[in-house]
């Protein structure tokens, strides 16, 4: 009963036409991204509250982050947004090859980002900057700097988790594309993934200046 006679048709049984299905997907994705904004929003709120409470400690701790790796990662992520956009464009023109090629690039760039992030994390481990009993930050002893690093790990960790989910999604899309599921009329999943990926990038565009840049005085 639930099986549609035409297995190839992307139209699900409960929609009247493809446009309705596309509209629904798009609205669903946007609504989901709004929940994501609020999810990160609480973390940003905590960041703002503690930064106002401990400006000096946050400044000292922030100056200690590796701005070169952070800037490099920002560039990598912006580039991945470009390749993602190209994949969405390829979807609109119905080029399966273009989709797969650009998604692979996006995965590569996303993995580079995560690799660099892992290097940054391991530096922090070696320098005892991971919050917890072994934390020590001799440049600025006191609670504020530990709070900064707690939020640093919570925020960048959650962001990295979103990247990992995104990369898994990209692999699934490549599989779907390889099976020939997308054509000029239908490439909605690629487009939705594009929205998600750009959102994750934008989160980083906020994280980078807040964590690495704005408190770097002298």
């Amino acid at each position: 009963m639930a099986k549609t006679s035409d297995k190839k048709s992307p139209l699900q049984h409960h929609f009247v036409h493809l446009n309705q299905q596309y509209d629904a997907s798009q609205m669903g994705m946007w609504a989901f991204l709004i929940t994501e904004i609020l999810f990160f929003g609480a973390l940003f709120t905590a960041y703002i509250v503690y930064r106002l409470m401990y400006p000096a400690a946050f400044g000292a701790a922030s100056s200690h982050l590796d701005i070169t790796l952070g800037a490099f990662n920002t560039a990598v992520l912006i580039a991945s947004s470009l390749t993602m956009a190209l994949a969405v464009h390829a979807g609109h023109t119905g080029s399966t090859r273009g989709i797969i090629k650009n998604l692979i690039w996006t995965i590569v760039l996303g993995s580079v980002f995560l690799g660099v992030k892992a290097i940054e994390y391991s530096h922090k481990f070696h320098e005892h900057l991971v919050p917890g009993p072994s934390f020590s930050f001799p440049l600025y002893p006191g609670a504020g700097s530990e709070l900064f690093f707690s939020l640093y790990f919570a925020m960048t960790g959650l962001h990295a988790f979103h990247m990992v989910i995104g990369i898994i999604g990209l692999f699934i899309l490549i599989g779907m594309a390889a099976k020939g599921r997308f054509n000029q009329e239908y490439s909605t999943p690629v487009e939705m993934m594009g929205l998600y990926w750009h959102f994750v990038d934008i989160v980083w565009i906020f994280l980078f200046p807040l964590l690495y840049l704005v408190l770097r005085h002298h």
Binding site: I34, T35, E36, L38, F39, F40, G41, A42, L43
Partner: peptide
């Protein structure tokens, strides 16, 4: 709009 804040 509210549940993600609790999640966070």
């Amino acid at each position: 709009l509210a549940t993600p804040v609790l999640a966070s």
